[in-house]
Amino acid sequence: MKTYLSVNAKSYAVEHDPRRTLLDTLRDDLGLPGTKKGCDHGQCGACTILLNGERVNACLCLTAMHDGDEITTIEGIGSPELLSELQKAFVEKDGYQCGFCTPGQIMSATALLQEIANGAPSYVSDDLDSAALTDAEIAERMSGNLCRCSAYPLIREAIAMAAEGKE
């Protein structure tokens, strides 16, 4: 079957197996392996992408259900030569070790900063109308992204640093 996707502002028509996940489409059909497969079950967050501006686990999305959708992957955030502020902050703070979960962490963090800017509350927010960028907020909102190297404190420092740079 065929599905039309916009990925990192480029249009694709993908011929695919009906069982194919968006994750496998990105990695194997479109040649965008920056999005990682860590569990294929929505448990680790390594495959986090932006789907129409919101973060999702690509392993839990069937390609067939996303005809016409707009997708951003880590490749659409920055390149080694031209890194985003968040990507630079991860390098400076050593917010990774093996690097495997890193694209997912950065995609999640990219969405997180937007969610905070939009005033979307979380479980740890003090009130329902706004959310401050505290360490507790970042930790809560990043907990869908596992990092077995356990760079957690440094990942959160990197996110806070990138957020400060934006203000």
Partner: peptide, 19 residues
């Protein structure tokens, strides 16, 4: 900073299954 950092944060470090 790690010299391999820019590749890791941009999804261009090539792990086995990326090939």
């Amino acid at each position: 900073d790690r010299p391999d950092g820019p590749r890791k944060v941009s999804g261009t470090a090539d792990y086995t299954a990326d090939h």
